[in-house]
């Protein structure tokens, strides 16, 4: 094939890659914090939906996606508070609470969407959102100009948010205590640090970012809500955290990789002459996760206290 064609094909795939990866990046970065502190939240899908719906409805009523995003974060923090209260304070089972969050997230957003917006569907679909910002000159660069310099704010923000996340996790006292809490809560406790409070903070960060990941879908990538719009992305984010070895940059690059698969499968289908069943391409991220487990061989570096409530004795 003509190398020029390949480069432009790749450039276009790359632009889509970053956009499709963005919800994974936010959500998995948050979950890295949560899991590093020892709290597993399999309810990400539900929290994302709540973020998506909150952002959508507040943007619809205020006309401002910034308010929408802020509201989504508030919604995420509320979820986080509830999650932490149940799993940290009451020491309830994290899987149960996560599963319940998924049920409630889907049911509640669907129910409210119908109660608030039914009959106003047509207008509800037109409202302001974060639109692509072209960076002057750079966006005109051949091939990769579009991929790198014609995205919306929430996409541009991802490396900076991850950078901040990595800094907090590895270079601050709080980060150190988060990481220790996930490994040896008893030692942290013995050192006089509040295990419970650290877990609360991590869960709050996790849920707030998951809500942002959901909000991205309704106020940045598209400007609409529909029931179940997250389409399983919360579960993919869980896989991203594992393959990314519980590190912020790992989560960032694995998110991009999954975004790349997503973009590639949409694009490959459109190229005539390639007749792979689309289900095969859809299955790729999940297959990859399993393959990673097998090929890495050594035990996953999961925080050793992941999923275990801490009882001070």
């Amino acid at each position: 094939m003509d190398p020029l064609v390949i480069v432009s094909f790749l450039a276009a795939v790359l632009a889509a890659t970053w956009r499709l990866a963005t919800p994974f990046i936010y959500t998995s970065l948050g979950e890295v914090f949560s899991e590093r502190a020892g709290v597993l939240n399999i309810g990400l899908e539900g929290v994302m939906l709540i973020g998506a719906f909150t952002a959508f409805s507040i943007t619809f009523f205020t006309g401002s996606p910034v308010w929408g995003l802020a509201a989504a974060m508030a919604g995420g923090l509320t979820c986080g508070l509830l999650f932490a209260f149940l799993t940290v304070s009451l020491k309830a089972n994290q899987i149960v609470v996560g599963a319940a969050f998924n049920l409630v997230g889907l049911g509640l957003t669907s129910f409210l969407y119908r109660s608030i917006f039914s009959g106003r569907m047509e207008t509800a679909r037109e409202y302001a959102s974060f639109s692509p910002l072209e960076i002057p000159l750079l966006s005109r660069l051949p091939f990769f100009g579009e991929a790198l310099f014609q995205q919306n704010l929430m996409v541009y923000a991802t490396p900076f948010v991850v950078l901040a996340g990595a800094f907090v996790l590895y270079r601050t006292a709080f980060g150190l205590s988060v990481r220790s809490t996930g490994e040896h809560p008893r030692t942290v406790d013995a050192a006089g640090l509040p295990v419970g409070l650290i877990r609360y903070a991590s869960v709050l960060i996790g849920c707030a970012l998951a809500a942002v990941g959901g909000a991205y879908l309704t106020v940045a990538h598209t400007n609409q809500f529909n029931e179940g719009i997250t389409s399983g992305r919360g579960f993919i984010a869980l896989a991203v955290v594992v393959i990314g070895r519980w590190s912020p940059w790992g989560a960032f690059f694995i998110s991009l990789l999954f975004g790349f698969f997503y973009a590639l499968q949409l694009r490959l289908q459109a190229v005539s002459g390639i007749t792979i069943p689309y289900q095969f391409l859809q299955a790729l991220p999940y297959l990859l996760t399993l393959v990673v487990f097998v090929t890495l061989r050594k035990r996953a570096d999961a925080p050793s206290a992941l999923g275990v409530p801490y009882k001070s004795s």
């Binding site: 432009s8 276009a12 795939v13 632009a15 889509a16 956009r19 499709l20 919800p23 879908l217 990538h221 598209t222 609409q224 529909n226 029931e227 179940g228 719009i229 389409s231 997503y262 973009a263 949409l266 694009r267 289908q269 459109a270 190229v271 005539s272 689309y278 289900q279 859809q282």
Partner: peptide, 27 residues
């Protein structure tokens, strides 16, 4: 006349539909 077809595997994933459309435009 060239025609390309993409299936999303979903009735709800508007983001994927948008990307599919953008990639067709690029083609």
């Amino acid at each position: 006349f060239p025609i390309s077809t993409t299936y999303l595997g979903s009735w709800t994933d508007a983001a994927a539909a948008k990307e599919a459309a953008l990639s067709m435009i690029a083609e």
